[in-house]
Simulated assay, not measured.
Amino acid sequence: MNSLVEVVGVALPETCGDPVIWVRPDSIGYFGPDLGVALHSTSVAVLTVGVDGPIVLEAPGCAVTTARSVYAPARASHRIIAPESRILLLFLDPAGPRAADTAAAMREFAGPFGLGHRREQALSIACLAGADPALVVRAAAGAVVAADPRITALALAIRSDPGREYRAPASAAELGLSTSHFLRLFAQSTGTTFRRYQQWARLRHVVGGLAAGHDLTRSAVEAGFASPSHFSDTFRETFGTSATAVLDAGVRFDIGA
């Protein structure tokens, strides 16, 4: 019981409400109704929790599965349906200071998908109480991933300047590694590919721009997308819905500190 109290903490007005997207250095989170997504594959791993009730996982090659929480690794095509529940979507930056092996907190697996997060009740309570996002992340985090410090530094550089085009051969050479070794090391340290991590950094920058009050076009250009259509295609591929649909749903943004 003490762990639940610790997770919930003090409800903060800026994180209460429905729906809301928060942006922090180590995470992006969404709390609100099902947005009706199509099949998609995220750039980084995502944890989905049915806050009010069960959710349904659909994925190619897997039986339709009902659970209260689902972990989907990066690049795993899937969609979550929540007909009677608001959901928590939690994207943890795989190379950030709060990077965690969320998969280790799942009770069982169906193919690549984890089912039943061990702290799903605490996560639901934290969302309903309007807990600070940092406490929600703390409830979700499992064992911390020991990333190679060279990869951690590179990931920070990518997040700091997402508009720059990073090439694997050049980045590998700067670290004194072969390209193949570099790409394996990056994937081992972050749980996603070098290309997908750059995609994640750009999408995160766009969401941060929207949270700061910038328009969608400006945010996408500053993030390094070649055109509005490039951004739209990437967003839909990653999240299973359009950025316009998210904005039309009346989502409120919380950029925090």
Rank of each mutant, 00 (worst) to 15 (best):
Q198S: 09
R159G: 06
R204P: 02
N2A: 15
T102D: 09
P149S: 04
V44E: 01
E14N: 08
S180F: 03
R159E: 15
G50N: 01
L89I: 03
R184S: 12
S41H: 15
V23R: 10
P60N: 07
A122N: 12
Y30W: 11
S69E: 00
A141L: 05
V20F: 12
I81Y: 11
L183G: 01
P97L: 13
V137G: 02
P162M: 09
A76R: 12
Y71H: 13
E14M: 12
V56P: 02
E174Y: 03
L210H: 02
F239L: 14
G116S: 09
F109Q: 06
H214Q: 14
S85M: 04
Y197N: 08
L210Y: 02
D18Q: 13
A172N: 03
Q198K: 11
A147V: 03
A140D: 07
A59Y: 02
C127F: 04
F194R: 12
V206I: 07
F231A: 04
S178V: 02
A220D: 07
V137S: 11
A99N: 06
A45H: 05
L247C: 07
G191E: 10
L154G: 00
G191I: 12
Q121V: 14
P97A: 15
A146C: 04
A104K: 10
A147K: 00
R24M: 09
R150D: 11
V49P: 03
I80L: 06
A103Q: 10
A139M: 03
E58P: 05
D26Q: 14
S77P: 11
T15Q: 05
D26T: 12
E222W: 13
F109P: 00
D52W: 07
P60A: 09
S178A: 13
G209L: 04
V64H: 01
G213H: 12
L47R: 03
G208R: 05
G176F: 06
V56W: 08
T66S: 14
G209E: 03
A172V: 03
G224S: 08
G114T: 09
A99S: 11
H78L: 09
R79T: 07
G224F: 08
G224E: 07
T192Y: 12
G191F: 11
G209H: 00
R118E: 15
A155S: 08
L185P: 01
A140W: 10
S69Y: 00
R196T: 11
G32N: 07
E165A: 14
A172I: 02
H78K: 11
R218H: 15
A45C: 04
C127P: 00
A63M: 09
L216E: 12
